[in-house]
């Protein structure tokens, strides 16, 4: 029994049906960690992108070093660091929060590059035209740069959303009860790993397909008329 659900070992199919609610509980945690991690990556990535593009190299340079460091060290190392080292300095976060934060930080280094490439793809000719027409910098950013950058950014961001989703099982090492961890517990208790792990694979496939379809729909829905996309 786990989370109040009994399993039925009479046949593989019966077993699969009986543990589905348990796995779905874990899947909900996986989705929550994905969404939270992705939001952190989107916001923090934008911060990095702005800092890296700052005119002062005293701001740009440290931001580049930090993001390079984040990118070149394993997610697991960062996760252990946040989970075991921060509490020594009095910062104690629930395992789930720590995990989502680690995912978000790791991926912010990647998303910052996506933002940067997207913003840079809007040529200086557009900024110059806006300046010649005396548009304010805020208006230029929101109505000239962003509408042209977003369609370039969305597909790459969608790929990272799927990547984050697939990295969530790493959080199991700090006791987060996401889908893989739940399946492993079921296996440990029933000595049947085949059915729960196969189900995790299948459920993952459904989740990633849904996520990439969603991204594709968003991409088709975005106004792209006239924007030269490579």
């Amino acid at each position: 029994m786990l989370f109040g659900y009994e399993w039925d070992l009479s046949s593989p199919l019966a077993f699969a049906i009986s543990i589905l609610p348990i796995l779905l509980t874990g899947m909900l945690v996986t989705i929550q960690a994905t969404v939270l991690g992705f939001l952190v990556a989107l916001v923090l990535g934008l911060v990095w992108a702005v800092l890296k593009g700052a005119p002062s190299r005293f701001i740009a340079w440290p931001a580049k070093v930090v993001t390079e460091f984040i990118r070149d060290t394993p997610l697991l190392v960062q996760l252990f660091f946040l989970y075991y080292v921060l509490p020594e300095y009095g910062i104690v976060l629930p395992a789930f929060m720590t995990g989502a934060l680690a995912l978000g930080i790791q991926y912010s280094a990647y998303t910052s590059e996506v933002y940067r490439a997207g913003l840079e793809a809007v040529g200086s000719d557009q900024r110059e035209a806006a300046r010649a027409l005396n548009l304010s910098s805020a208006r230029t950013f929101t109505h000239i740069i962003v509408p042209q950058a977003v369609p370039r950014i969305v597909p790459a961001m969608g790929n990272y959303l799927v990547s984050i989703m697939k990295d969530v099982p790493v959080l199991s090492v700090v006791t987060v009860l996401e889908m893989l961890n739940v399946a492993k517990i079921v296996g440990d208790r029933t000595f049947d790993y085949l059915v729960p792990l196969s189900m995790v694979g299948a459920l993952y496939l459904i989740m990633t397909l849904v996520a990439s379809t969603g991204v594709r729909l968003l991409d088709t829905w975005l106004p792209k008329q006239g924007i030269p996309l490579k």
């Binding site: 000719d125 557009q126 035209a129 000239i144 106004p223 792209k224 008329q225 006239g226 924007i227 030269p228």
Partner: peptide
């Protein structure tokens, strides 16, 4: 290069 706003 004209520099028109392509999305408008």
């Amino acid at each position: 290069q004209f520099n028109l706003f392509p999305h408008m």
